[in-house]
Each structure stands twice: as structure tokens, then as C-alpha cells.
Nucleic acid binder design. Structure first.
Lengths: 149, 149
DNA sequence: TTCCTTGCAAACGATTTGCATTGGA
DNA sequence: TCCAATGCAAATCGTTTGCAAGGAA
């Protein structure tokens, strides 16, 4: 559940890719490295600005491959743009705090007891509709400290 | 917080639109009526199938207008498709349970004490990053009863 | 050699927009 | 009359794909 150490991360990724006979190429490493050092989910365009050496189509292909094998998680922001971040087994489980004013996204890592409480609530909710819970996403929106001034 | 009575709904909508000098036309009523009777957020294509009389471009325009004045809320599914549902002040606050197998989305209305607990947790999380909470979305994914058989 | 990868350009598909027309207050 | 609303076609734009060339094992 907790994040993989930074040094081990690339080895973990390489290993996971190898299981699928997929190479951990320079372009893919650049994507993972970039996502490792920036906060919040990034769009293809965001990443393209940071690794201008990789053409967009290749970037999209890398993102697809990495998401397919579970190294990245993909979701869509309020504008429908696809955004990517390192998957939870690499990043650690976390939630998002989105500023409705500036769009900034902050990662929030709940303390273990808060997280436990969330799970309990979710299990409650799920049992009422007889679902088998796999995962959950909590996204909180509000005004960030910078914008509230 | 609770849902507006079905009969009052259209009056509420008409009122809200009137504040913006926007007419509550047949097409818009069809959209609202459809969203009122189907479960879960609907895509433009979904809605178009149900109200085939309205061309897609007009449908998109209705959806945009209705979302802009806060009658509909818009979000994107895992494929990036825009989906719409009646806003919370009309629908009542609720969360989503998404089946990862068949894609079905179920609305979940948390009991008031569960909801209170969620808010407490969120306020906790938010205070740690000094955000001013406005809203929250909890999306739980798992296997629905039909798919688990 | 074998197959995964990459680049470029073309194709796609959801959504948006220009413009002339229609319709309600 | 006046201005919002509509329909149609064309344009946008993020994303995907075909295909030929490149590269690692």
C-alpha cells in the first residue's frame, strides 16, 4: 500500500514490463521519471512539454502501454483531458484535492486510521447494493490556500 | 440536500433557467425528463438514442446550457466520455458505485450519519493542506451482483 | 533474424461552432 | 419586433492507428 522507494521504482517498473515482454525504453523511462517528480496527474500535453524529445504519438503509446500493465493509472479531469499518474502500488494510496479556482491538484495521503474509516464507510455503502469492492476514489474540491487570499 | 419532488423539479429548473434569461424549451425538457427517469450519468450518445428527435449538436448545446446554470453536473467516465446527471440540489447528494466488469453505474445515497462521517474525514484531510472544502465525490468501483455470479 | 519501438502522417470520434432559419414572448 | 434556440454542415482537437524504418536481444 505504501510507496515504493524511489531507487527501486525503476526496477519494479522494469520487472513489471518484462513480465509482458515489453522493454523499458528511454521514452518510457522519461515518462515514469517525470511523473515521479511532479505532483498530481499529468496530461499527455503536460508531459510532452517536459520531454519535448518524444513526439506526441509515441508519448501516447508509452502512456497506453504503461497504463495497460498497471504502472500508470489514467483518469479524466473536468475538461475530459486524460491524465496519468504512477499507480498506487508505486505511489502509495492517496486522494486528490482539486482547487476549483486554479485547477491545481494536490495529493493527499490519508493517515492509516482515516483510511481505515473510509474503508469501513465504503464497505457499508457497498453492502447495501451487494457490490464486491475493489477500489475507491475520493476527490475533494475546494479553494486552495493560494486562491483563497 | 435531499432531492426535489418530481413534480416540482421542472418548476425549479424553469425558475433557475429564467434567472439567466434562458428558455425551458421542449428539447431541454426532454433532456431533464430523461435524466430524471434513468439511473446513473448518461452520455450525449445515450441521450440521443432516447430522444432521437433532437439532433446531436442541439443536444450538446442543451447539455452545455443546463450544466452551465447548474442544473446538470458533468463528469467523464473511464473512457473519457462526458456524462451528465441532474445536479445534487435536484437529485440529492449521492455517490457512485461502478462495476468494473460491465460498466454499470449505481447511485448510492449514504445515510445521513455515514455522510456526516465522510464529511468529518474530508474536513480532516482538507485541513492538513489548508483547503476550503466545497464538494466531494466518492466513487467506489467493484463487481456488481450480476457480474459476480 | 525476430519483434518490439518509434516517427510521421493520416484517420478517428467526441464535441464545438458558424450561419442562416425558426419560434416564442 | 427582438433575441434566444435550432438544424445542418464544417471545423476542432485530443487521441489512435497504419506503415515503413530503427534498434535491442
Amino acid at each position: 500500500m505504501s510507496a515504493v522507494a524511489s531507487q527501486e521504482l525503476h526496477e519494479e517498473v522494469r520487472r513489471r514490463l518484462a513480465e509482458h515482454d515489453i522493454r523499458y525504453t528511454g521514452g518510457r523511462q522519461a515518462v515514469v521519471r517525470t511523473l515521479q517528480r511532479v505532483e498530481g496527474p499529468q496530461s499527455a500535453a503536460d508531459l510532452h512539454k517536459r520531454v519535448r524529445s518524444i513526439p506526441l504519438s509515441s508519448l501516447y503509446r508509452s502512456l497506453m502501454v504503461l497504463a495497460d500493465v498497471g504502472i500508470l493509472s489514467k483518469h479524466h479531469d473536468s475538461d475530459g483531458l486524460a491524465r496519468f499518474e504512477l499507480a498506487e502500488w508505486l505511489m502509495g494510496h492517496h486522494h486528490h484535492m482539486v482547487c476549483t479556482s486554479c485547477g491545481r491538484v494536490e495529493d493527499i495521503e490519508p493517515s492509516s486510521d482515516v483510511e481505515a474509516a473510509i474503508r469501513r464507510l465504503i464497505d457499508d455503502l457497498a453492502s447495501s447494493v451487494d457490490y464486491q469492492v475493489e477500489d475507491h476514489v475520493l476527490e475533494v474540491s475546494g479553494i486552495c490556500p493560494a486562491c483563497s487570499k
